[in-house]
Design a protein around this nucleic acid. Structure first.
Lengths: 229, 229
DNA sequence: CCATCTTTACGAATTTTTTATAAACCGCTT
DNA sequence: AAGCGGTTTATAAAAAATTCGTAAAGATGG
């Protein structure tokens, strides 16, 4: 499971921060709110966010100053929100280190898109995110290869898909219905004969004794379960 | 003295491009203009810009498609200019790979500030980045030439593009889908017959024994992989 | 006209689907 | 506990569909 990306929201209007917190959270981000610049800097040191959204007008420290201070310690993307639409203000903010400037009122979809754009060019996602591993099995989703104890299993595409779904739910019982739906699509959830054939092929490739399976177990009348041991 | 940073402006309104060219030039950028998406891509290949500014509405290829195509071959910052201010359009553009979206009419100072912001977070351009080298192969993106052991391969434009994509991802498996999207564009990701033909042509030009390829390997049912050895 | 790109066709190899048959499992009766 | 339908599961093998490589015929654009 991938860790949620952190977003620090800096604003002193509870009305706005409440909306932002909710929208960002439901979109899969980990959100914290700081009410002024000082608190924002302090929070950022303890809880380094992947992105900062800040208002310009704030008590204590202006958004401009916050941009400069953040820039001096980090390259974190900064999006400035402001009611002020004058060009001069925008230029100041952008030159103070902001990456983007959005004028209120704004659409939440646009903000989310700009957040995605800003996060996209940040550090490339950690390598190995596309590798599944358990027991002596290892699946590389990008290279499309599956190995057992280092040996390539040479799975066909459907076998590979099936293996991935079993793997992703290792230990759990998967119903015929759900497996068929996941691998073959919603129109084939009754075709249990496909499953029998392909489970058999997989067993031939990964089990020592296919008729006495140790990894791909049958749950009679329900489905199958993958036990990577 | 540092070389001027290159900006590619893509728009079909001479009125606007003239203004942009002048303003950007006087602000120290090296500017070229392309009238449509196809020409923009072509120009970008020979003259890799540090930033691209594009309109959305254009003949031939939409700005959206241009974003996607550029993204597939480069991480160059893209700023979209458009008269259309609807949120949906902005979201589409940003998700297609644009880094920023500015609604016309806009202030030149703001555009310049956004350009500075976009260029600021870009790693300084590395001279000689237009030369790719691996094994006995060498590709010069500016000169548009590919050589094997010093001998010119005389690749056609499409062959060249395909080669570059294989090359940039040497060792990795590239799916049919991703190769077609990168070389032919998003509307051709199902045209696997193109790929068969062009992979065959490339093999004829670089493999000793085309029917027993050593460099361009087939990953059955998935795609191809370039192994520069 | 020429180089390039697109489209079509076909055989060989491989995979997926379909079909057939044997084996295993459950609840029930005797 | 043994036996018996009815159902589910395992396995093998056929038929059908798909993919890949290749050649070559149209189409396109300068």
């Amino acid at each position: 499971m991938e860790a949620k990306q952190r977003i620090l929201v800096v604003d002193d209007e509870p009305q706005l921060t409440r909306v932002l917190r909710r929208s960002l959270s439901t979109n899969g981000y980990d959100v914290r709110v700081a009410g002024d610049g000082d608190f924002a800097l302090q929070t950022f040191r303890d809880w380094p966010a992947a992105l900062v959204i800040t208002d310009l007008a704030m008590p204590n420290m202006s958004g401009l100053e916050l941009c400069r201070r953040l820039r001096s310690i980090s390259e974190v993307p900064i999006i400035v929100l402001s009611v002020r639409g004058e060009e001069k203000t925008k230029v100041e903010a952008l030159d103070a280190g902001a990456d983007d400037y959005i004028t209120k009122p704004f659409g939440m979809d646009e903000l989310l898109a700009r957040i995605r754009a800003a996060l996209r060019r940040q550090p490339p996602a950690d390598p190995g995110a596309h590798i599944l591993e358990a027991g002596e099995f290892r699946i590389d989703l990008e290279a499309h290869t599956a190995t057992q104890s280092g040996k390539d299993l040479r799975l066909t595409p459907k076998e590979f898909d099936l293996m991935v779904h079993l793997f992703r739910n290792a230990g759990k019982v998967l119903t015929h219905h759900s497996l068929l739906g996941a691998v073959w699509g919603g129109d084939f959830t009754e075709q249990t004969e496909y499953l029998r054939v392909f489970i058999g092929q997989l067993r031939k490739k990964i089990e020592m004794d296919p008729s006495n399976p140790r990894y791909i177990l049958t749950e009679p009348w329900i489905g199958y379960r993958f036990n990577p041991e």
